[in-house]
Write a protein that binds this DNA or RNA. Structure first.
Lengths: 217, 217
DNA sequence: GTTTGTGAAGTATTTCACAGCC
DNA sequence: GGCTGTGAAATACTTCACAAAC
């Protein structure tokens, strides 16, 4: 009794919804680790600071996962979300730029524990190349295209200086990469079919000051 | 629930607009550094992957900064945006959590070059306390409230383990902090008047896999 | 009693389109 | 010729409200 719901009308799921799903997943996982079995949209909304209606509507794009009068079975909903987001497979990830930040990323266990395994690392600095960091050997930049396409890597993280970011990302894309998390503090252009997310704490700070100043007046 | 607080003449600027301003600023600064003096909304939109109308509309919330037939004087627009975002003063920033990521943050020059000066750093690990990192002495956690309020710090960055993040952030808020950039991979609850931005690459990856999988089918 | 799922209603945001100006 | 600034229109998103289910 699944499949049939959204088949004929072909409504695209809004991207904001997709972006919220991992947040639901994270909070649900925490609840499960606390030994909780069932949660209502209201309880989840309180934890995540979102309205219950929003959560129900978001989930309804994909199916009917709850039970009236009860709420959602946490383990079941986790399973559904992981399937929707394609998180049951292990994803290969490439990392470009092994400076201080790149090393922190390589050593961070949170990627592989969530199924994102960094399988290749690159740096332009000859003194870095050949070093082992976090079990990975650092490769020279001229091998980037070759290794990315040979390994079929579709996800990359860039932690290179701002001036090199665009050209590195261009090369990643032409090697077959579809999704990029970019740490370089610079605006990047990508084709429509490529997903780019910028991780930029300075940009985040620069919008918050507006509100601090406004609150003072 | 009807209670529209904003009905009399004064229209609140949407938060999405405020979030875009720093991006405009960054690209404008790059153009200025390339020696360019004037830019049209179309040119800027091409660089930033946004429609010209959106840029003009965003700027029109704050004034009329352009010239018909010509576009915007870059140096003038930069000045305006910096004033709107309150970026002409130096902002004191506190950092909590001096692990690998915290150290990368402390050593990153990009905060202070943009006017965000890290003036206090805290860690719970006794072996870290008293060390100098990036010109700052690491303080113990029990001094957090005292130093934050004595220094009048309104902005903090948290890079602590997920399990401690909520309690650290609660303490920051009760010490007077208004804006927080949180690197801990966990959902955090804050009052309405506090701005919180999460920096979470794993969450970013978990929504991108949806699109990779969708593209493959 | 409680809570889901969902059309309909209500907001918010983006885009259009053009007068006015260079 | 070009471009901005802005109401109006269009689109996108969120919230409401209630029948159906437990």
């Amino acid at each position: 009794m699944k499949g049939s719901v959204k088949d004929s009308t072909y409504t695209e799921v809004p991207e904001v919804v997709i972006i919220r799903l991992p947040q639901y997943l994270r909070t649900l996982t925490r609840l499960r680790n606390q030994g909780i079995d069932v949660v209502s949209s209201r309880q989840l909304g309180d934890l995540i600071q979102m309205t219950p209606a929003q959560i129900r509507k978001d989930l309804s794009y994909f199916g009917r996962f709850g039970k009236q009068g009860r709420g959602y079975t946490i383990s079941g909903l986790i399973k559904q979300l992981r399937t929707i987001l394609a998180l049951n497979e292990e994803w290969k990830v490439g990392l470009v730029g092994i400076g201080r930040l790149g090393r922190a990323i390589l050593s961070y266990p949170g990627f592989s524990s969530e199924g994102f395994k960094i399988v290749a690392a690159f740096d332009s600095e000859p003194s870095q190349v050949g070093q082992m960091v976090g079990g990975i050997m650092i490769q020279p930049m001229h091998k980037l295209a070759e290794i990315i396409s040979a390994e079929g890597i579709q996800i990359c993280i860039t932690a290179v200086p701002a001036d090199f970011a665009q050209s590195v990302i261009d090369e990643l894309i032409s090697s077959g990469v579809k999704s990029i998390v970019n740490y370089a503090p610079v605006g990047i252009q990508v084709p429509d079919d490529i997903k780019l997310r910028n991780i930029d704490p300075v940009i985040a700070l620069q919008s918050m000051t507006y509100y601090i100043k406004k609150g003072c007046v």
